[in-house]
Design a protein around this nucleic acid. Structure first.
Lengths: 329, 329
DNA sequence: ACTGTGTCAGAAATCGATTTCACGTTCAAG
DNA sequence: CTTGAACGTGAAATCGATTTCTGACACAGT
């Protein structure tokens, strides 16, 4: 790849002028034209590494997520990407596997590569943004908040939990269980709280805790916990799954035992990815994942451009898509 | 972030020595110790941008894929990531949306960021690797081959098409249609050829072409084409879907009309992501996506380290998981 | 004691851009 | 005709590491 010096030589100007042509500063039309010609002839593209070193920040945004195989996060990634692309940034996807150590490593990489900013769905409430913030890099968290003073874009988790549970109650179910993720993950906890709000309001159980199960946010978790629930002396007649993968896992078990969608009502928070079920079979509280990415990216880019207003937390509205189930009673 | 100069100052040595400590060259134990101490005290991490500029290559691998929302590719990405991480590389995921222009842009970025190498699932047969190869960057293509002289890791596509079709034939189906992707995508074409091998061997149709449909490799495509097929005067009694998303789309239509899995047999090449169907409902030709990523990453890293043997194309074996369907006859 | 062989470490060049500074022109206002 | 503001340009410093070159020093062999 040609360097700025070779272009300068061919165009008969100084490297500084070449740089100015590519950065919008005023250059006489004649020179500008000659530089552009020379650049084209040499197939010149500015070396981003050198530019980054000098400028102290690149045109790359780090997007750090816990699980690249979860369609919820990839949908969000698409939102981030579209906005970033539009603004001239590229996006680097980093997968943490929900491990704090991996997450920390990616933060270090983002810093030492002088990336322009970071969007992160924190692996846990103990995620450490200290260094990134100290270095003055803009950060936006998505899906979950932290104790740090940064912008955040999150879902309305507790209302989502309530909406899902309410819908099942309206459909006539009276023993509604809940499967959620690890208790130290905000979304898991809040959605479960929403469920609890409704079941206690209706005094559904003597001991609600028995019908609330914490697990991992994965298909395996859904399978295991659904199996447990069905083994209870009084199994539930309906279920709220706190995320998409738990929903898939639970439905796999129910389908396997031919209990769904008729016998056991299911509501999923976040939608069923690539489902082949008819939309009427399951109640879905749709979470606007793409929009979350779009919003986060817009905020981040504003910050990169110098916006210094106080950090905000934006809560996105969810949307109820009720199934057409009806309890057997 | 502290620089190498500050560390040098604090440790009472030259920057060169600090660099040597972090790069394995021999340094007297005393100095090494003092440098390490100073580095820790200043919370020093080497600036990768500067290192990359000097070394002319970074420790980042670009992984360029057509669709980040397709679980087939994210599964592969996990394979790449695990191997890369192990070897000290980080992975940058780039989404091309199957657009040659976006793909070309990402190649340019990879070059101008001096990335160590590129793994790409080419957007089409017209993908242009010229620049990347000219710059001497190692490239491995996955899923699809190209006319360029680079390593490739692909699935056994035509055999997969045959296996899927054969399984349906064995189950008693006699009018087996095929939905595949765009004709200029190798995997789409080859899998369809596999289907054609079998249906012509059994002289299944007067005009096989009528039961072979090209579409996009997405859920939408599957829905549309399946609908068309069912509207034929003589609709098929079974279907081969050439990839996971087409399979999902087709099954959505079939489920909606209550035609599956009993009335119309379905075989999917690549597996149904997050399915809630019982495994017996559908025949699956499992493609080892993760293994493809692992293999590609291993080869790429060997190349980065200097391996210069002639380019190879590695074909991965697939695995048939037959459903327990049986034609009505 | 002298030479030769290593080992260790610092000075300085280097990677390829951006940006500051200073200088020369041009042109309009007074 | 002078003053000065605005503009265009090149030289050189800069970003933060790596690496080459060179010199200092120690030690072993003769």
């Amino acid at each position: 790849m040609a360097t700025i010096y070779e272009v300068a030589e061919l165009a008969g100007v100084s490297p500084a002028t070449v740089s100015r042509v590519f950065n919008g500063t005023r250059v006489s039309p004649g020179n500008a034209e000659r530089v552009r010609e020379a650049a084209k002839k040499l197939n010149f593209t500015p070396n981003r590494t050198a530019r980054t070193l000098r400028r102290q920040h690149s045109e790359v945004i780090a997007l750090v997520i816990p699980d690249i195989e979860n369609p919820y996060f990839t949908e969000m990634a698409r939102g981030v990407e579209d906005v970033a692309q539009e603004a001239g940034f590229s996006v680097v996807l980093c997968n943490t596997d929900s491990q704090l150590a991996k997450e920390a490593t990616y933060f270090q990489i983002a810093l030492s590569e002088s990336m322009a900013g970071v969007i992160v769905a924190p692996a846990s409430s103990r995620s450490d943004l200290t260094d990134v913030i100290a270095r003055g890099r803009p950060v936006v968290t998505v899906d979950r908040t932290t104790d740090f003073d940064v912008d955040a874009v999150v879902m309305s988790n507790r209302p989502a939990g309530r909406a899902a549970t309410d819908a099942l109650y309206q459909a006539g179910y009276r023993r509604i269980a809940c499967i959620t993720g690890p208790a130290d993950i905000e979304t898991a906890y809040e959605r479960a709280q929403g469920w609890k709000d409704v079941v206690t309001r209706h005094e559904m159980f003597d001991d609600p805790e028995e019908y609330l199960r914490y697990s991992t946010f994965g298909v395996d978790g859904g399978v295991k916990v659904m199996t447990d629930l069905l083994a209870l002396p009084e199994p539930p007649d309906a279920l709220v799954a706190a995320n998409n993968l738990l929903g898939v896992g639970a439905l796999q078990v129910l389908t396997d035992r031919e209990l769904t969608p008729l016998r056991v009502g299911v509501a999923v928070i976040g939608g069923l990815p690539f489902t082949t079920l008819p939309p009427s079979a399951v109640t879905v509280v749709r979470l606007p994942a793409r929009n979350m990415g779009v919003t986060a990216a817009r905020i981040l880019i504003e910050r990169i451009k110098g916006d210094t207003q106080p950090a905000r937390t934006i809560v996105l509205r969810n949307q109820l898509v009720p199934g057409r189930h009806r309890a057997a009673t």
